[in-house]
Write a protein that binds this DNA or RNA. Structure first.
Lengths: 227, 227
DNA sequence: CTCAAACGGATAGATTCGCTTCGTTTGAGA
DNA sequence: TCTCAAACGAAGCGAATCTATCCGTTTGAG
């Protein structure tokens, strides 16, 4: 094997930086994040992005797969806790923390690969186990199911305030914002414990979360206008 | 007064439709909502928008003022309740419901008019009163302050799932999504009641919310890249 | 009927986007 | 130390959008 990798190390570093930057820019700019912004944030040229991913979509798909790995890992770590409540709380906290709602804006804009689907299934199974364990131990309110918790995570995952301060470069306030966020999460977790009055309505069907990733194949991703 | 208003009624209706549409499109498309999308959603021509507002910013500023009126009204209604908890719960529920997080993405992108500032001050006063009353009655956990509640409202106000289903035209699932959302709000409200362990950290300073509206005057509203 | 007020949509001019091409830099092997 | 393919950053391309204006048409009170 002659002449293989003159600058292999730099390529690896750049790839890592690109993924990190993509996540960050996605969180801040939402679904209309541009490849130029991602490359700039990563400190690399645009070509370095396209050398590794055939298109913008492919980059985002890869990012999704990595994020799903994080969800799975958070659930596995949660199941390692002996205390069912501690385990669930760790799971929710971790998911809210890393997700940052990054994937939310992507839903529906990119096709779901087989890899993504498989990881989603695995993640779902683990979460069900976490919740069932907490239910059996009586520490999680019985009227809250996996869907309620998934939606709560999604709701808390996005942090508009931090994203905005980030955009404005107000690094002085970001610490305070993170503290505030932690308190909000704590309040929501307290609301999940046993000993509260019955929740309104019935638990949402799983189709609610599954349906949102249905890809609208490049057609009308238009605004809410009249047809 | 001769010849005054040949089509005055239609103009009025269009103005109302425009404001409603602007709010809707802002919620769905975020800060980069286009005037074309707003006009289309309202079912009017673009010219009808620019006939009433000198610019896109002016429309958004007017929308902000109207939304602040809603916040104020929600607080006033809340204070009318005899039960302090019912009053606070009404306030939070109403704010989460109508706000829809519409104003969040606008923060920092438009200048704050005097009218907006005055209404914000008034809204703040009323909310402080609502919270103080609930604290004194002992129904609201003592370690949660106005900032915590404001941030909770902001966090719950945005509903990515509903917005997305809206965009995809999945009207069949939207009912279920609204039900799910109501449950999430109920969980958070339960977390605000008295009788929970102490929250982490200390209550955030009011500057956190004030600072976000500081207008970056048309300069670098760029993505998080290196300088 | 008249005709000003209000309308909708085509259009201009500038910006932004995803992606490609190209000349330069780098560092492992000889 | 020298070589040269691999990897690099950034300018450039055509298409798509965006804000705002212009203009011919429709409407309804006098």
């Amino acid at each position: 094997m002659t002449r293989k990798a003159p600058r292999h190390a730099e390529a690896e570093r750049n790839d890592q930086a690109l993924l990190e930057a993509a996540k960050k820019v996605l969180a801040v700019d939402g679904a209309h994040a541009s490849v130029a912004a991602i490359a700039t944030c990563a400190g690399v040229g645009i070509a370095s992005l396209y050398r590794r991913y055939r298109s913008k979509d492919e980059l985002f798909q890869h990012l999704c797969a990595l994020s799903l790995d994080q969800w799975i890992q958070a659930a596995e770590r949660g199941l390692e806790h002996d205390d069912p409540w501690e385990g669930l709380a760790h799971y929710i906290g971790a998911c809210v923390e890393f997700s940052g709602g990054s994937l939310g804006p992507l839903a529906g804009t990119i096709a779901v690969t087989d890899e993504m689907a498989a990881k989603f299934t695995r993640s779902d199974e683990l979460m069900r186990e976490l919740v069932a364990r907490a239910h059996q131990a009586g520490v999680l309110r019985p009227d809250a199911g996996t869907m309620d918790i998934s939606l709560l995570i999604e709701q808390l995952g996005k942090s508009p305030l931090i994203e905005q301060l980030d955009r404005q470069g107000r690094t002085d306030l970001i610490g305070a914002a993170r503290n505030a966020r932690r308190r909000t999460i704590a309040i929501a977790l307290d609301g999940l414990r046993s000993g509260h009055p019955q929740l309104p309505g019935t638990e949402p069907a799983p189709a609610l979360l599954a349906g949102r990733w249905e890809h609208t194949p490049a057609d009308q991703a238009k605004s809410p206008g009249r047809p």
